[in-house]
């Protein structure tokens, strides 16, 4: 049966830099995925409730303000609380080297910085999507 990967691309927090989020959203669409874009300024609750309603396979978080250690982890915590462990979470933005392993430990399976190829993100999702 036809099975499309559904991805939620979300911008948590106050950061307005959406160039990367939009490019990734387009690239995922061009790779055949259904991409739901939240727009800016989302709280963790909004992102997680949307992920539930849209029954997405993947949540992609984009943040360039540096607040990723708080806001990304808020999302993974809440997903877990609501029993959505089977959602693959990836994140991108201005993320210092030291933070990446901590994010991975907190459930952000893939961390992508500036200069990442969209193809790499597509590949990562296709390989790691959990259901």
């Amino acid at each position: 049966m036809e099975r499309k990967i559904r991805v939620l691309v979300a911008k948590p927090g106050l950061d307005g830099h959406d160039r990367g989020a939009k490019i990734v959203a387009r690239a995922l669409r061009d790779a055949g995925m259904e991409v739901i874009y939240t727009g800016l300024h989302q709280t963790a609750e909004m992102i997680v409730d949307t992920a539930i309603q849209e029954d997405v396979d993947v949540v992609g978080l984009s943040l360039l303000s540096g607040a990723h250690m708080t806001l990304f982890i808020d999302v993974t915590k809440l997903l877990k609380e609501k029993g959505m462990e089977d959602v693959l979470v990836v994140g991108g933005g201005i993320i210092p080297e030291d933070d990446a392993p901590k994010l991975k430990k907190a459930g952000i399976a893939g961390v992508f910085g500036p200069g990442t190829h969209c193809d790499d993100i597509v590949e990562f999702i296709k390989k790691n999507v959990k259901r």
Partner: peptide, 23 residues
């Protein structure tokens, strides 16, 4: 300025979470 300031929020506003002094 950091994001809360750019959006006219004080540091103790709920939307400021995680953003203090970040960028």
């Amino acid at each position: 300025f950091d994001y809360p300031t750019l959006y006219g929020y004080d540091t103790d506003h709920v939307m400021s979470r995680g953003e203090f002094g970040k960028c």
